[in-house]
Design a binder for these strands. Structure first.
Lengths: 248, 248
DNA sequence: AAGGTATTGTTGTCAGACAACCTGACTAAT
DNA sequence: ATTAGTCAGGTTGTCTGACAACAATACCTT
């Protein structure tokens, strides 16, 4: 009983450890392969579900499950009564970052680098385009974060809000969404580091100062200064292997 | 007969015009809403397929189709015999760019900007890290592209290979993949522009020179020069509204 | 009490059917 | 002859029911 409770309440440990390869996944890969290898070209008709289930010797339900995934990935689309067709830009409407984190530290570093680039550019663009409203929002988030941290909290939400306010100031919603996407991927990884780092009141002052420098650069409309401020901030806060010193 | 042929051979124009909202899509949205609104928290168990089909008054097949999509989006995962569970970082393993292009020119400009940022940074990083092999690859691709264009071709593939060789030189595969993702989204849009631009032999020389400047900066290990060379190159080649001059 | 077994529940797969919809051919009316 | 309407066949979307594979628990035998 105790063990079972433990198993169930075990907090999100096991990412879907692959058991045996699911049939539907195999079918998905097979069909996607047909498209990626250009055997089926954009606009062409995909064989009917019945044909596929006959050819692959699986049930139509399994074929449908595979097609559902491919539709969602943007490889094919279907019209009721007509059939399924290969999409114009197969597979290029989604950018996936799957089981990369926490497996290989190198991969983590790669994502960190992507985040760093994105946030540096966000800050630079924000410095060019920010409105007074944007600026107010940044300051509000920073104040909240500092307040929370001085009360012993992590201030993680406020930190996210801070970076988001910078991304919003670029006026580019797609860029902002991507910053969000990359940011959330990395921040979780940082949480534990942050906790220990925050024990030092010294580092806490550093963080506040680093954020202030970012805001000041954006307020003064100095893109390069903003970029460098973000770069410094992230380098200080992210203890990941330095890619520049790794063999490539 | 003639009309039907025309309809069929019409080259990939109409994205799947939404007919009536599919049931499975409605279910997908409903379930995703439960997760995004934090009614179902990460790690929690999702109701069984049977329960869901009873509650929503749809068949289990439809529920499964919805769950298939959500699994693929990274909102949930399932284990045979146990059940389905909300993922740790719901929905954050995919970055989607859906029906944005060619509908709204502003959106196109936003993606162009993202591409420009990514490629500038790729070039800058490449300037720091490129190997001689990388450099050789860039030159090879450029030579091929120029050759094709002088023979009246577009040299699109070679152009893609050129930019990819720069992305590869960063040594960051995730960044390279993202550059590929964004690049292919924008390049198709450019194709028609390029065609007319290439008619001018003058512009053709420009393009070659611009590419050469990029390579030279990377060869000389000058990150900022490489960044600016890419920036110039993209600004010359992309006739999109300048975001800096748009009201924000 | 411990270990093996049966039972129950859940997801994965299969099979068949009907509904909604598209296409093309055929028919009938003008 | 042209046009409109109807019908038939094919395809995807949804429904129903069943079995297989697997996990967890309850039970039973030793």
């Amino acid at each position: 009983m105790a063990t079972s409770m433990l198993m169930d309440s075990e907090p999100n440990v096991i990412p879907p450890i692959s058991r045996r390869p699911l049939l539907s996944v195999a079918v998905t890969d097979a069909l996607r392969g047909k498209i990626e290898s250009a055997v089926w070209v954009p606009g062409a008709r995909v064989p009917t579900e019945k044909d596929l289930s006959a050819q692959l010797n699986v049930s139509r339900a399994t074929v449908r499950e595979a097609l559902t995934r491919l539709k969602h990935e943007g490889y094919v689309y279907s019209v009721q009564g007509k059939g399924a067709f290969v999409a114009d830009k197969p597979g290029l409407n989604t950018f996936r970052v799957d089981q990369l984190l926490s497996e290989n530290p190198i991969d983590s570093a790669h994502i960190f680098e992507l985040r760093s680039l994105v946030e540096q550019n966000c800050a630079a663009l924000a410095a060019e385009r920010r409105s007074v409203t944007n600026l107010r929002e940044m300051k509000r988030a920073l104040k909240k974060m500092v307040c929370e941290q001085k009360n012993g909290g992590l201030g993680l939400e406020a930190d996210i809000a801070f970076h988001r306010s910078i991304a919003d100031a670029t006026g580019n919603p797609i860029l902002a969404r991507f910053a969000d996407f990359v940011g959330k991927h990395t921040r979780e990884y940082l949480q534990v580091v942050r906790l220990s780092a925050l024990k030092s009141a010294h580092r806490l002052d550093d963080i506040e100062r680093e954020h202030m420098e970012i805001i000041e650069a954006i307020e003064a409309r100095k893109p390069e200064a903003a970029r460098k401020a973000v770069s410094r901030h992230l380098e200080n806060g992210t203890p990941h292997p330095d890619l520049r010193r790794l063999p490539l």
